[in-house]
Write a protein that binds this DNA or RNA. Structure first.
Lengths: 150, 150
DNA sequence: CACCCAGAGTTCCCTTACGGAACCCCAATA
DNA sequence: TATTGGGGTTCCGTAAGGGAACTCTGGGTG
């Protein structure tokens, strides 16, 4: 498909897409986060082609999102989140909130998340990491940063 | 490419991917959010094929993320965010934070965002919308929800 | 030792989607 | 009447996804 390479754009959104933007990657991340760690387990749960799953796992390991952990004398590996990968899960939590709000319909959300700190089932809320006030699309102005393209 | 249809899975992440998961869609959303609204403007900025841009815009309008606004006597349209689309921008903000943190390298972030409420350039922070404490991958437990598959 | 099994890929073929360039349509303008 | 500009549409070549079959490795079992 000779896809355009997003990784070289001067944009953190495009670069992030280069890591998890390919089809299936966010769902693989979801499953690994949920505790699935083995190839056949992922393949069966997602119904993804084995070829594509291999490609995605290799890419996510190369990018430092997953680490491959041997678990047998034989060449068998489990996939686990790295710190870098765990922070990517924030993305899934925001997707969950949006999907729950706009796409769940009458049936309601398929999955609920219980926040361990307070015990309630809740969603994430985006706040400014400086002042703590809400921070959404219309609350911010973009400025060129140090890594801006020439 | 006979891509698998994510929209029918009982998962808000998969359903959200069905809306903006296709290649280019998040970058189109970024540009429209940044104020670009016309076909040729988007096409030139992204370097996307006109065919694919047409397909993506149609899909995003169908999904209620953008609305088409006529701006001339001729059949000319601008694309603007709906409320549904504006909330999707939260996703871009989280992608920006992750990309800034893990992929920007020595050069630093290509774009900074100034939070209007406090005037500082900052990132988003994910908090529980119930108790206000931080909410990340390891702070939550999934439970089946009302819309869970049978 | 021979055989079978399980997990994790790998290979092959077919179909579909992307990229790029050329082309089209319409209304206003010169 | 010819031109221009915005917004697509069409066509072709190539690469990526889907699916099934095959391979490889190292146990267990009889």
């Amino acid at each position: 498909m000779q896809r355009t390479n997003f990784g070289e754009m001067a944009c953190s959104i495009a670069r992030t897409l280069d890591v998890i933007g390919e089809p299936w990657s966010p769902l693989i991340l979801r499953d690994v986060w949920a505790g699935m760690s083995r190839f056949d387990q992922l393949q069966a749960d997602l119904g993804i082609s084995r070829k594509v799953l291999t490609e995605r796992l290799n890419h996510l390991v190369d990018q430092g999102v997953f680490e491959r952990r041997p678990y047998d004398n034989r060449p068998r590996y489990e996939y686990h989140l790295t710190a870098k990968g765990a922070e990517l899960v924030d993305l899934l939590m925001v997707m969950t909130r949006w999907g729950d709000r706009w796409l769940a319909g009458e049936a309601g959300p398929p999955v609920l998340y219980r926040h361990q700190a307070c015990g309630e089932t809740s969603h994430v809320d985006l706040r400014c990491d400086h002042c703590g006030e809400p921070m959404h699309a219309s609350d911010i102005d973009p400025l060129p940063g140090p890594g801006a393209a020439v």
